[in-house]
Amino acid sequence: MIKYILKRVLMMIPTLIVISMISFVVIQLPPGDYLTSYAASLRQEGDRVDEAELEMLARRYGLGQPAYVQYYKWVSGIILRGDWGQSMEWRRPVRDLLWERMALTVAISSISIIVSWFVAIPVGVFSATHQYSVPDYLFSSLSFIGAGLPGFMIALVVMWIAMRQFGLNVGGLFSPEFIGAPWSWPKVVDLLQHLWIPVVVIALGSTAGSIRTTRANVLDEMNKPYVETARAKGLKERKLIWKYPVRVAMNPFFSTVGWTLASLVSGQTLVAVVLSLQTIGPMMLRALTSQDMYLAGSFLLLLSTLTVIGTLISDILLAWVDPRIRMEG
């Protein structure tokens, strides 16, 4: 098992190197170099351009030097100093912007995913064990609607209902007075009051898909001979369903953790824009539209790295739950 994990970790390294190169190319894509546009944007806004600062930045990122030097400086900055570069739009280090939003993003998305699994798995199993019954048709229709409706639409509807029917303060994760305020107990309470709408909206979309996946997987497994063996032992039907076919049907969930991790961060961008959540998605969107390339490149690198790490986690989880895979590794 340890050998298997080590092998997988080593295999990540070349992938990560290639990803960082591609991200770097993306940063370099817009015409002109970053400093020129940075200085231009400063001038445009009437700020005084500090030549010494520009000089310092140029040295730090190796601007004006060959591409491989710049690449090396950028990558080593990230790895050795945690320096992801400078956002010209925000005029702050990318690092600060990233981590600020990372925590909230991960919190919202992981809560949503856990909520959606808690709903989707029992419903999917029920649908499979009661195939073609009225509740099965009902759940199937609902999940098709859920999967078909775009998330931002659901977000708008939920916001409208919350505001009109319950008079709630919607949008954002905090009430205005807490934005930018230091963390305190009332701020946490305020966050929890705002959290449920994004969680419901994000969970709805993924629940629909997960119900379908669970139902299909369990149906596939239910006709396997080992389920009949379990039945022939005299086990209770419910117990054997959860112990055998459901257990095997869960494997695809573990193998999708890889993508889930990246979509935790970047996914639901539209929903986040509609709900004005201070998560990473809207920020990345803005970075791309305003050609804030260090910021955009950093997101690209981060998301790709998360996908690679997610795949590693999937592989380890799968090997852990499925002895057949463990053996091959």
Partner: peptide, 10 residues
């Protein structure tokens, strides 16, 4: 089928 009649993950 003794292969498929036994659970693969137990």
């Amino acid at each position: 089928e003794p292969m498929t009649s036994l659970s693969p993950v137990h």
